[in-house]
């Protein structure tokens, strides 16, 4: 509970700035994805199942993350990840 109150205060402090400059931006979408991810991780992935799950949650979360990275001028991180992806795909 106390964890959830902290971000709200943070939001108010950063109100004058871009809303995505709040470090806790996208938290709700992250939580929604994480709940699914943890289940998939322990019940599926660690047991050898490689099929991807939580796609819908992931895509919604990533739309928000893109805006967040833009606000912090960190978009290049996504480019970096794309390169990594391609490296994996080429394998």
């Amino acid at each position: 509970m106390s964890n959830q109150q902290q971000p709200q205060q943070q939001t108010q402090n950063n109100k004058e700035k871009h809303p995505m400059l709040d470090p806790t931006a996208c938290k709700d979408l992250k939580d929604r994805h994480d709940q699914c991810f943890y289940k998939w991780y322990s019940n599926s992935f660690l047991k050898g199942n490689t099929s991807a799950e939580c796609q819908e949650e992931w895509e919604e979360y990533q739309v928000c993350i893109k805006d967040k990275l833009k606000a912090w001028n960190l978009e290049y991180l996504l480019e970096k990840n794309k390169e990594l992806q391609q490296k994996n795909n080429n394998k």
């Binding site: 943070q10 470090p23 806790t24 931006a25 996208c26 938290k27 992250k30 994805h33 991810f37 992935f45 050898g48 490689t50 991807a52 992931w58 979360y61 993350i65 967040k68 990275l69 960190l74 991180l77 996504l78 970096k80 990840n81 990594l84 992806q85 994996n88 394998k91």
Partner: peptide, 23 residues
């Protein structure tokens, strides 16, 4: 530690290895 966000998650179909990047 204000936030930890996933930026990517990939599973190598051959090795079954999961690679995630986080900010």
């Amino acid at each position: 530690v204000l936030s930890v966000d996933l930026l990517s998650k990939e599973i190598d179909p051959e090795t079954g290895v999961l690679t995630c990047t986080r900010l």
